[in-house]
């Protein structure tokens, strides 16, 4: 590292502290007692697990919320990855009448702002009597046009010779998809899956309006409503609750940060 780079490093380090400090102080505060939550810096002098114990023995179904969020996000991501990959494969590599029309209709749906479809979708699920179920928390995310676009671009780049060779070998279209296109695109599929997982796990507006019982809440909504309601005065417990709520995303970040950033980079290039 040359001396000329020192100012750059200093600025980046200050920036990094600003980025990380709030979460570290959250973690620190979650181990403090209620009365000491604002004193003595971010490292607790007398760390205690009392806040966590209180939360898990209270009537807040935190574990249920986290499990709701995780299962809903995983199922939605799997659905998106499978159906988007199938459709993108067909749109990019198979020829059929109306293919271009379908592709342009799907891509232009990227412009529809989510707010415009939110209320009609709520009424749709309401008339199907599916509000406040896992269906309503999973299904709306399956119409993911971004994934189609992402995989379409990738599949276009796979040479036609591979498809033709598979065809000559007598492999069916489905077989070609599963034995050539899926293996070649695992990186893109994983990226799409992760981005979908993150979006669904962190979504706020839709789970807020589409669920109404405590047991069906996702963790983002559940914690938010608890925070507004009963914990506004006890910051230490609120911090412990919040920290628990972000553990799954922290793990995803630690293990898949590279994939996530890759996916987001491609977002920028594709649009």
């Amino acid at each position: 590292m040359s001396i000329k780079k020192l100012p750059v490093v200093i600025v980046l380090v200050i920036g990094s502290i600003i980025m990380i400090f709030p979460i570290l102080s959250l973690l620190g505060a979650s181990f403090k007692t209620h009365t000491l939550v604002f004193t003595g810096g971010i490292i607790p002098q007398h760390p205690t697990l009392k806040n966590y114990a209180t939360i898990f023995s209270s009537n807040i179904p935190l574990l249920r919320w986290i499990l709701n969020s995780i299962s809903v996000s995983i199922i939605a991501s799997l659905i998106v990855v499978v159906i988007d990959s199938l459709a993108a494969y067909s749109l990019a590599k198979l020829k059929f009448a109306g293919r271009n029309v379908i592709f342009y209709v799907i891509v232009s749906s990227l412009m529809i702002p989510p707010i415009a479809t939110l209320i009609p979708m709520y009424l749709e699920f309401s008339s199907a009597n599916l509000l406040n179920t896992y269906w309503v928390l999973v299904l709306p995310y399956s119409a993911n046009a971004f994934g189609i676009f992402l995989l379409y671009q990738f599949y276009l780049g796979i040479p036609d010779e591979l498809v033709d060779a598979a065809k000559v070998d007598g492999s069916s279209k489905f077989r070609t998809w599963i034995s050539i296109f899926v293996p070649l695109s695992t990186a893109s599929l994983a990226t799409l899956g992760l981005l979908t997982f993150m979006n669904v796990y962190n979504d706020f507006f839709w789970p807020l309006v589409s669920t109404n019982s405590n047991g069906m809440r996702t963790v983002t909504v559940g914690v938010a409503l608890t925070a507004i309601g009963q914990y506004t005065t006890n910051y230490a417990e609120l911090m412990a609750l919040t920290f628990c709520s972000i553990i799954p995303m922290l793990l995803a970040f630690i293990f898949a940060q590279r994939k996530l950033t890759q996916g987001i980079s491609t977002t920028g290039f594709n649009l």
Partner: peptide, 21 residues
């Protein structure tokens, strides 16, 4: 990675932390 980190958190988590700060 450090600058990207807050983006993976939910809006609930970040507003809770900042409301407290």
């Amino acid at each position: 990675a450090i600058f990207f980190f807050p983006s993976v958190l939910s809006v609930t988590a970040i507003t809770t932390v900042w409301s407290w700060i």
